[in-house]
Design a binder for these strands. Structure first.
Lengths: 215, 215
DNA sequence: ACTTCGGTTATGGCA
DNA sequence: TGCCATAGCCGAAGT
């Protein structure tokens, strides 16, 4: 359709007259798509209430929710199709998420050092740290942040946890991919980083190698 | 269409057989939508190369890019429509973004204290701080983090900037909305927070005062 | 190419 | 409900 759009709520946006595709889903979610890209230009969440109105001789679609509203002015409607999709979507199965890594590491903590696993999602005053371990030699506490890809934020995160931990502890980042600048930043802050290979699903596992960085 | 999807790249996902809507755009972007929600279940960015193949008697759509690939197995195709959209999309105009707030505050710094504006996006060793100002009474440096909605991360952010700033300075958060726990956290770390009303767009504004620095 | 950061981020989980 | 942290986050801008 050829349309212009006005959104007001968490922010305010305007979309000038042009050809676009508008999708309205079963749960009331709306999205306005341009001819390019993955993300919709405008959209509205599942709770939206749809009101089909007119302004002069133009069709105006209004979507309202608690604190937001979206107004699509339809200048020309080229085509309108409806398709039943059903609500038994099996859903997306993700593999190798951070949670998976965390689970794996809690069972294979020796892969990243001479460590003993203590706790997972261990509470600190700055929030829960992914893994709490102990150095078998020194007996020191080690707090580990697990990431698929570790960027600078991982360093800041682990520093907060160290600050909020009851004892003084050593910080460590374990990830499939530790970005170059993150390595330098971690070193600078005395935080150990370890890259591990993507762990295979349980039944396929044989061996893993690891690359380690020190400060 | 009725399809199942396999993605491998930045992560790995599986999507079991069900009815969905697949959108292929001008620039090569693909998205697989379920009947609910805003975000696509699977997708692939603009650079994707499309190969239309077969596996047995089933159509298989493969999308490849540098380090990713998406495979859609089509079990049944209900309908296929093509629509020309054109590439002169005027684009989304955002209003009241953080950048706008920053701009406004740099011109109206007196709204949040007896301050004198010094610099915007002022560099520190921890990255550029939104606004650098000076306390007119004490002469102390004040570093300000501007947000639409300020959550705990704003506190940590400003602390990093204070750490990376050349002089000792006072930290401040200015936002349309400072979340309750963020207020407490800011207080705890000695960081001032100020909530402001959403500034009106430039053309509606009646007057602004400007502060000029003397050398 | 890599990094950083905003976003109407969305989404899920937990207190 | 609010808050936190993840996400294949996306997308844009700067280096």
């Amino acid at each position: 359709m050829n349309c212009s759009v006005r959104y007001s709520g968490r922010g305010d946006t305007t979309l000038d007259k042009y050809d676009r595709v508008v999708i309205i889903k079963n749960d009331g979610a709306v999205s306005v798509h341009s001819g390019d890209g993955i993300k919709p230009l405008n959209y509205m969440g599942p709770k939206a209430v749809f009101k089909d109105t007119h302004e002069g001789d133009e069709r105006v679609m209004i979507f309202d929710s608690a604190r937001e509203n979206l107004k699509i002015t339809v200048h020309q409607l080229y085509e309108e199709i409806t398709w039943e999709v059903g609500d038994e979507e099996p859903g997306l199965q993700r593999d190798g998420t951070e949670a998976d890594l965390q689970e794996w590491l809690s069972q294979n903590i020796e892969q990243v050092g001479n460590l003993e696993f203590v706790n997972r999602e261990h509470p600190t005053s700055a929030g829960p740290v992914d893994i709490y371990a102990r150095d078998k030699e020194t007996g020191d506490d080690v707090l580990i942040e697990v990431k698929r890809v570790a960027s600078s934020s991982a360093v800041y995160q682990i520093r907060r946890y160290l600050e909020g931990h009851e004892n003084s502890a050593h910080g460590m980042i374990v990830a499939l991919d530790v970005r170059p600048r993150t390595r330098k930043l971690a070193d600078k802050h005395g935080i150990t980083w370890v890259e591990i290979d993507k762990p295979k699903p349980a039944e396929e596992r044989v061996e893993t190698t690891s690359v380690e960085g020190e400060c």
